[in-house]
């Protein structure tokens, strides 16, 4: 329904694209046998290790996600670091 959506400014994603996103996430977890609980636990440990070496400005902003690639799945961590000017 392309142009009509644009005309009326409908921005919400379609329910089918929501389904696809949710499925991709669920399937990666199914395939690597990692429960959301274990994922949280792992995230906490990763942050603890990183913090031993560098300053992590906002632990809340850290994103650890499982994503699907062509042949393999990926564990991705996005960790914003503090930018201190002092040497």
């Amino acid at each position: 329904m392309g142009f009509l959506d644009n005309l009326f400014g409908r921005k919400q994603p379609t329910s089918s694209s929501v389904a696809k996103e949710r499925l991709l996430t669920v399937l990666v977890h199914d395939r690597v046998h990692l429960s959301p609980h274990d994922m949280d636990e792992m995230k906490r440990e990763i942050i603890a290790v990183i913090e031993r070496y560098v300053e992590v400005t906002n632990p809340e902003a850290i994103e650890v996600t499982l994503t699907r690639g062509e042949a393999t799945d990926h564990l991705k961590a996005d960790i914003p670091l503090g930018r201190s000017r002092q040497q």
Partner: peptide, 17 residues
Amino acid sequence: RMVARGDMMDTPDVVEI
């Protein structure tokens, strides 16, 4: 009709998944 209005996953989506 549901696929056309974005309320059902399309064939390429399912094949990709």
